[in-house]
Design a binder for these strands. Structure first.
Lengths: 175, 175
DNA sequence: ATAGAACGTTCGTTAAAAGGAACAGCTCGA
DNA sequence: TCGAGCTGTTCCTTTTAACGAACGTTCTAT
């Protein structure tokens, strides 16, 4: 099963803090914890208490699980890291993923169910993606939607690529 | 803001455990923690470590946040909950958000920097979104890209709406 | 009844998380 | 150039969460 990685928690803490313009000292003071404590956590050392995590989550205005959930790293054998962000509960069914590809990696994806479509939003880096034989090259900020009921691929060259990905499964015709 | 209630954690811990037919000793052993530890937690005393919570969440097969914040904490003043997913480090700068809107809510957004664009992927529900006066209605799986350097809005009717949102900031011309 | 094996509790000990002060580095203004 | 103020780090100390063994229960089987 998933193992607890403290390093990613630290990175995420730091990212959130800086994104909201806090300094380490400020956040620690606001949360009511010692800044030595926060410093250690951001470095990936230590094993925070629920109380500590809670105080930080409140100040960062994050639903708590966000602080630590991204630790789950389902796969990564091929230089690709994927995490499930959300699953729609409507029809059609939609799965939302966050995905990061290392440089010089190629990920081949099997066809999804008939009629399925994928939409990508590239956050950083450069990525070639799409159905085999009909791929596009995206740079940061670009979006792409394509039919995912055929074999498709994701390929990086010299850079990392980070993207949001959604899979829309075609509604089944109620015969 | 919300305060950490230790009692509720204990109750939920016990409820989940019993619902799955575990005994306290069994769960403690499976999770690899001392049963004295688990006992104390269920009684509402104590302040568990992230490692401890993690091990329990894995065994109980709950998404972690469920253990602590059983009821989702929509920390939106206006019925809108937003979390930062990621920030691109390239040019152009891209911010990625996850967003959930309660039924019958209207969110008005100020213009971003000139040239900024937003892309949406709707995960579930129905949402009307876009620049003021030029909005589109999206259903699950739909995508939309629009200029975000004008006032724009997000509006729900009878349903919740969950979506991914990215803001692409136009690269500044280095004068 | 009675030994056995579970259950969940309570205790003292130990490992470690949190606190607090001192530290080096940097920026800004006098 | 000096100092005041901030950044984040690294110690050392105090607090406390986690451990492990012992305990009082209850239930079953012999």
């Amino acid at each position: 099963m998933d193992k607890l990685s403290l390093g990613t928690l630290g990175q995420h803490l730091q990212t959130l803090r800086q994104a909201q313009g806090w300094s380490l000292s400020q956040l620690a003071a606001a949360a009511g914890i010692a800044k030595s404590n926060l410093s250690r956590l951001e470095q990936g050392n230590g094993n925070p208490t629920l109380d500590t995590i809670w105080r930080l989550a409140v100040q960062l205005k994050v639903p708590f699980g966000t602080l630590v959930a991204p630790i789950a790293v389902p796969l990564g054998e091929d230089g690709v890291e994927v995490r499930l962000l959300d699953q729609g509960k409507d029809r059609p069914q939609v799965d939302a993923y966050w995905m990061r590809c290392a440089p010089h990696t190629l990920r081949l994806a099997e066809p999804h169910t008939p009629g399925a479509r994928e939409s990508l939003i590239l956050i950083s880096g450069t990525l070639e993606a799409g159905p085999e034989g009909d791929t596009r090259t995206l740079s940061a900020g670009d979006t792409l939607t394509f039919a995912a009921d055929r074999p498709h691929l994701y390929r990086t060259e010299d850079t990392w690529a980070t993207l949001l990905l959604s899979v829309v499964y075609q509604e089944e015709s109620p015969s």
